[in-house]
Design a protein around this nucleic acid. Structure first.
Length: 431
DNA sequence: TCTGGGGTCCTAGGACCC
DNA sequence: TCTGGGGTCCTAGGACCC
């Protein structure tokens, strides 16, 4: 029996999240900025129509923002993450098998839903998410993941479709017609570099890619490219992953809100990132055996002296303990830190990640001490989970953290902070 | 003044071994 | 003129995704 997959994708997710709690913004242009209020990472349809491109530095859009009264938000990941959970919980009601692909997308397996046309089912999913969570979604249904992406794009763009397009029962001729109208750069798996390469070789549409020579594709785009081609032909090569394997790398890094020069401040930042990483490591029940620390100056400032470096350190005994990781991070930072530079960014990358129960024991470890540490870490995690992130933290992460990223226009944490939940005003005066 | 963050997979090429 | 051959493992870097 053929695979049938639906791709549910939230429309302009971050912008839509902001709109849920600011219904006045319906129909108005909204943009959401990246960390540090740097680039535009989400746009409402109205903002897209005004010609604001994805990834544009916000200072280059100043005029447009002013002239068209565009509403600007800093990113509020606590809000988006929570809204994402709600959307995914809702979607889970419609299928036993689904893969949460990103914060705003999920693949739903509709295998065994014996219907020629699943458009109606898609509509039901769509209206339910909209009604329960307030987020608009688009749905593409097809026989391979790559084709669901194609269908989803069209569903999103073509307003006559009402947000759902099912091509799972289309004939090859009908599918080819759609692929012929899909630009090569819009194909899932074809990024910027491959788009250039393919166009140079006359492959300008998804249909031409589908009909390209296997040998040529394999040579120039590796087996990944070949997989994409097969998927366009309706041969499923990328399966639905309904369990999330633990991460093999965990990275925490941020650009600073201002240039940072002193080792002391860099240490605070790196300790903060080590803390974040170790929390994520513990959440997936893993240990890290390698810690990488990196730092860099602002590469856009051509006239300033540039320096960037990274260092990799093998941890004697794999760990997920915050204080240990802070310690390793700071020691290694010292090795690559140089005075006289204005640093823009630093980070910590944990790798060599192994499951906790596969720990390779070290002969010389003091067991009693490490058990005590475990209990301390557990206590800190419990308190922080209950009372809010960072209620308790290591002194090494700093108190003021004046290097922290800028988030000048962040909305409230409407769904995750008691003191920030939305207040509904009664239209009747109080008695 | 101001340019994001966090992942995965694949391959080429070097190191090393017999 | 001539400089073995073949295998494995690891890493850096390049591509992609959102």
């Amino acid at each position: 029996m053929n695979n049938i997959i639906a791709l549910v994708d939230c429309n302009n997710f971050y912008a839509s999240c902001e709109r849920v709690f600011n219904p006045d913004l319906e129909g108005k242009p909204i943009i959401v900025l990246s960390n540090n209020d740097g680039c535009v990472v989400a746009r409402s349809n109205e903002a897209k129509a005004l010609g604001i491109p994805f990834g544009k530095p916000v200072f280059e859009c100043k005029e447009l923002i002013k002239n068209h009264h565009i509403y600007v938000f800093s990113s509020n990941y606590a809000l988006y993450g929570d809204m994402s959970h709600r959307v995914m919980d809702t979607l889970a009601q419609f299928t036993p098998d689904m893969e949460i692909y990103s914060i705003d997308e999920a693949f739903l397996s509709l295998k065994g839903f014996y219907k020629r046309n699943l458009t109606k089912y898609g509509q039901k999913i769509r209206s339910t998410v909209n009604k329960w969570i307030g987020i608009p979604v688009s749905i593409g249904i097809a026989t391979t993941k790559t084709l669901t992406k194609v269908a989803n794009r069209i569903a999103k763009k073509n307003h006559k479709l009402d947000g759902v397009l099912d091509i799972s029962y289309y004939s090859e001729v009908e599918i080819d017609k759609i692929l012929n109208e899909t630009e090569i750069g819009d194909v899932w798996g074809v990024g910027w570099e491959y788009e250039k390469l393919l166009k140079r070789n006359g492959i300008t549409t998804a249909l031409k890619l589908k009909n390209a020579s296997d040998k040529w594709i394999k040579k120039h785009m590796t087996v990944m490219g070949l997989r994409t081609v097969f998927e366009l032909r309706g041969i499923s090569c990328i399966s639905l992953e309904d369990t999330t394997p633990p991460n093999e790398e965990i990275m925490s890094s941020r650009s600073f809100g201002r240039p940072v020069e002193t080792l002391e401040e860099l240490k605070e930042a790196v300790a903060t990132y080590a803390t974040l990483s170790s929390e994520r490591l513990r959440a997936q029940n893993s240990l890290a055996s390698i810690i990488n620390v990196f730092l860099a100056t602002n590469r856009f400032k051509k006239d300033e002296p540039q320096y960037s470096n990274c260092i990799s350190y093998e941890i004697p005994e794999p760990t997920n303990d915050t204080s240990e990781l802070i310690n390793y991070a700071n020691k290694n930072l010292e090795k690559i830190y140089k005075t006289g530079y204005k640093y823009k960014k630093a980070g910590v990358l944990l790798s060599g990640i192994v499951p906790k129960n596969q720990k390779q024991l070290n002969l010389f470890t003091n067991r009693t001490r490490s058990n005590k540490k475990n209990k301390l870490t557990q206590a800190i995690d419990t308190i922080n989970t209950k009372w809010g992130r960072n209620i308790i933290h290591y002194a090494g992460t700093g108190i003021e953290q004046s290097w922290q990223m800028r988030r000048m226009k962040k909305s409230q944490n409407y769904t995750t902070q008691w003191d920030e939940i939305p207040i509904i005003k009664s239209k009747y005066p109080e008695k």
